[in-house]
């Protein structure tokens, strides 16, 4: 009896959480007259929506921009955060705990507080309408990833590093040839988390990007919605086709890197 209830509950949950995806893909393949009909299968089947949206907006450019910005953001965040985390995990120096406290405090700082002044900084540098502000800040590490990678480094066996130190390895060698390979799973966690964060972000592209040729996918998708959604030209099937294009890469990323996403989510809270 209890097992039947559990089974039914799990079935209902699966249906509720997967239905919107099914609906999205299905509606993106319907023609204009049927896009609101909520039928599970598109009839008539209208894959031409994808061709049409491809013609109407520079979707390929936006995908390329999203890939470039996402990879730059993820690579920068991974390398820089690893450096800083290694410094916190492996060396003793005065003020270390105080500085790490500051790192944790910046994790709690509302992003809205620095939104305006950071924009004005990029503006003063003449870079406020480029893609650079979307990723370059990661070159200095990001608090959450520093915290996460520090946990990884602290989990590595100390003796291995002490032995290498006795053998005369300097700090840089320890970092590059020992810590990085051993912390590989942690580095992947940071990379995929930041890739997802950059791929899905809207607020920075809204603030910085003016030229449609520079748009990332979410920024472009917002334009598609404003132009083809209700009140616009009412071509929802195009909005949904573009939404599918923006979503599918993240689904694939999750399916290949699932355990890293779960690990990163769970590690958020090891230190209470």
């Amino acid at each position: 009896m209890k097992r039947v209830a559990t089974g039914l509950g799990l079935l209902a949950v699966t249906a509720a959480f997967l239905y919107p995806f099914w609906w999205l893909v299905s509606a993106s393949l319907k023609d204009r007259a049927h896009v609101f009909d909520n039928s599970l299968l598109p009839s008539p089947f209208s894959p031409a929506n994808y061709v049409e949206v491809w013609r109407a907006v520079p979707l390929l450019t936006w995908i390329a921009n999203s890939v470039a910005v996402g990879v730059a953001a993820a690579a920068a965040a991974t390398v820089a955060s690893a450096l800083v985390a290694f410094g916190f995990a492996m060396f003793r120096f005065p003020g270390r705990n105080l500085l790490f406290g500051v790192v944790l405090a910046t994790m709690m700082l509302p992003g809205a507080v620095t939104m305006v002044p950071v924009y004005l900084e990029w503006h003063a540098l003449g870079l406020a309408t480029t893609q650079i502000p979307l990723w370059a800040q990661n070159l200095f590490g990001a608090a959450f990833y520093i915290f996460l990678l520090r946990q990884f480094f602290l989990g590595l066996p100390r003796e291995v590093f002490d032995a290498a130190k006795v053998d005369g390895a300097n700090a840089w060698r320890l970092f590059v040839s020992m810590a990085l390979p051993l912390a590989r799973p942690g580095l992947i966690v940071v990379f995929v988390f930041e890739l997802k964060a950059a791929w899905t972000d809207l607020i920075k592209p809204l603030i910085y990007l003016r030229e449609p040729e520079l748009y990332t996918l979410p920024r472009g998708l917002k334009t598609v919605l404003d132009r083809f959604g209700e009140g616009g030209e009412a071509q929802w099937e195009l909005v949904l086709a573009a939404s599918t294009v923006a979503t599918v890469p993240m689904i694939l990323l999750f399916l290949v890197a699932q355990r890293y996403f779960v690990r990163g989510t769970v590690t958020q809270h090891v230190e209470q």
Binding site: L18, V35, T200, L240, F254
Partner: peptide
């Protein structure tokens, strides 16, 4: 089931907003 629950988290919020408008 963990995969099922987590997949929506991956959806770009703009796409999520567009589909939930409908």
């Amino acid at each position: 089931f963990r995969t099922v629950l987590y997949l929506p988290v991956m959806t770009p919020p703009v796409a999520l907003a567009a589909m939930f408008l409908l």
